[in-house]
Amino acid sequence: MNLNHFIQRAVADFRQNLPMQLMTTVVVCLSILIFTFFSFIYYNLQRTVERFGSELGLVVFLKTDIQESKIPILHQKLLNLPGIENVKYVSSEEAFERLGTYFEDAKGLLEGVDQHFLPASFELRINRAIFNLERIHALAVELEKWNEVAQVQYGKSWVDRLSAFVAVGEKVIWVSAVLLLATAAFVVSNTIKLAIYARQEEVSIMRLVGATNGFIQGPFLLEALFQGLVGSLLSIGLVFLCYSYFKGIVAQTELMRGVELIFLPPSYVISIVASSVVFCVCWTFLAIRRFLLV
């Protein structure tokens, strides 16, 4: 008894029970499709939020009593931090000028105001690949401990709100993911069970003429492997089609400029396919076992 023989029998089986086999494969595909599509949306949402957050960069306000001579040293110190791409010094005067352009239509407002009332600052651009919201926050807290630093801003309230949204969203999404997975598991396992029950007679007769359990299970397990593999790959293929379609739409929509849709990472795709295969094979194994006892 070798693998070749199992494959031959599995192929013959597959042809003989084509409608049932296809139904199981489609059920596997649809069940996983819902979950995969959901993951895809969530994954992109999360990435977009993170990207916007980190795009804001950080503004490090210096204390007003800082010595001019210390500025280049600080500049270098900030540049040396990991993940910092660019550091721009904005002097007190420059800041005042910016304010001036901001209030261009109401210049009078700033008349008589001390040019130095605004603190000097550094504007940090950070590497998006490295920083997520949490790390930006950690960096801000760290910088605020420096003696020369008065305050660090990173569009905090906006990011905070966004993070809070993401945090709540994350819980909702985890719960939904678990529910979706449970539904998929329930539907797939029952479909497999029905398919095996339909072949109960065949299985028990094979036992009666001297087939070992391995001989009987071999083709069934190969079929399950096929169903799990093809079903999950199909669903991922469908999500990929959606992705290609949406990508075009997003690229053409003015409002979403800068947003870039990303397909699920390979590691995620591999785990979906692997879990699907393992689940189908294990359930088939369990479903068939009860007919192998006599």
Binding site: M1, R9, M206, V209, G210, A211, F215
Partner: peptide, 8 residues
């Protein structure tokens, strides 16, 4: 054939 398949 089943009787013969099971004995390989």
């Amino acid at each position: 054939a089943l009787s013969l398949e099971v004995i390989g």
